[in-house]
């Protein structure tokens, strides 16, 4: 019983973190058709910014996080202007953008090292609330992650479904050329998408930074897990992303509990390879979207 309750809590926490990362990645993928390798480093940068606002600015942790999200939105606009739009319309531009985002990872990591130094930081927990359901305990940042992540991603799904900008995003996703003929400016959609994705990554970074530590390389693991989530849920579908995030969270929690920390990534990526071989369009997708 004790094992199961640990697994439940860590499934929900990990699933929450991964869905915050993967939702942004899938949004960027479905509109820009590029994989943002910089997403993990952006998450890390968001965590550091939250720490600075908290430590130097003396703000409460939740306010510091909001401030970091706002600052990261500005960085997101710059990211789109410098790394995406100069390349995306060229022939083979998607490749150039992916390489540019890889370069951004190194730049952000070295930048963080320069700005914040080598010593490891940690954020305080987001509140001290504690909830126990049938033996499974979640408290502080864990509890916030469990509740906030699905709330934010659900909100994003609602915005995409119900609002004008959501309709525009979906249209661009489904038929870029015809969307342009209707007067939709892809650039505006790209900026919106990148800013939202980076905002979600910042939240993930701050939450992770309060449960573990903040270091320049902290984004690597979550980025790789989010990649597996995309493979599992099918890139481009938010429902698939949510389900995929919980599935990977569960797999990781179970394998960590029974086989140990060092075996868990091996098994998670093994699962991804099998899925890619057997069902490359993602487990929840019935068929690949026609071109």
């Amino acid at each position: 019983m004790d094992g199961i309750s640990v697994i439940v809590t860590s499934t929900l926490v990990l699933g929450g973190l991964y869905m915050l990362m993967a939702a942004g990645l899938t949004l960027i993928w479905s509109t820009l058709r590029v994989f943002n390798f910089g997403h993990g480093a952006l998450m890390m940068f968001g965590a550091y910014l939250t720490w600075t606002l908290l430590d130097a600015g003396g703000l409460p942790v939740a306010v510091a996080l909001l401030g970091a999200v706002a600052a990261m939105a500005v960085i997101g606009v710059a990211y789109e202007f410098l790394l995406v739009s100069p390349f995306i319309r060229r022939p083979g531009g998607d490749m150039l953008v992916m390489v540019a985002t890889l370069a951004a990872t190194m730049l952000l990591q070295s930048g963080a090292q320069l700005i914040w130094g080598p010593e490891i930081k940690q954020l305080p927990p987001f509140g001290g609330a504690r909830v126990e359901v049938a033996g499974a305990v979640a408290q502080g940042s864990q509890l916030v992650t469990i509740l906030l992540a699905p709330l934010l991603v659900g909100l994003l799904a609602l915005v995409l479904k119900r609002t004008g900008i959501g309709l525009t995003v979906r249209a661009l996703e489904q038929n870029r050329e015809h969307a342009q003929l209707l007067g939709i400016a892809p650039r505006r959609v790209y900026v919106f998408v990148v800013v939202v994705a980076i905002g979600l990554a910042t939240v993930a970074g701050a939450l992770l930074g309060s449960m573990q530590f903040i270091s320049p390389g902290m984004g690597g693991d979550p980025l790789l897990r989010a990649f597996v989530v995309l493979a599992l849920g099918g890139a481009g579908s938010l429902t698939g992303t949510i389900a995929g995030a919980y599935a990977i969270g569960l797999l990781e929690a179970v394998t960590t509990y029974y086989f140990g920390l060092s075996w868990s990534p091996v098994l998670v990526f093994l699962a991804m390879i099998v899925i890619m071989l057997v069902k490359p369009e993602g487990l929840l997708r019935t068929k690949v979207r026609s071109a």
């Binding site: 309709l167 979906r170 249209a171 489904q174 050329e177 015809h178 939709i184 979207r289 026609s290």
Partner: peptide
């Protein structure tokens, strides 16, 4: 044009 496969007719017109 294959239009926007996942949008309804009304959504496409409103768009």
């Amino acid at each position: 044009s294959r239009l926007f496969p996942q949008l309804t007719v009304e959504e496409a017109l409103r768009l």
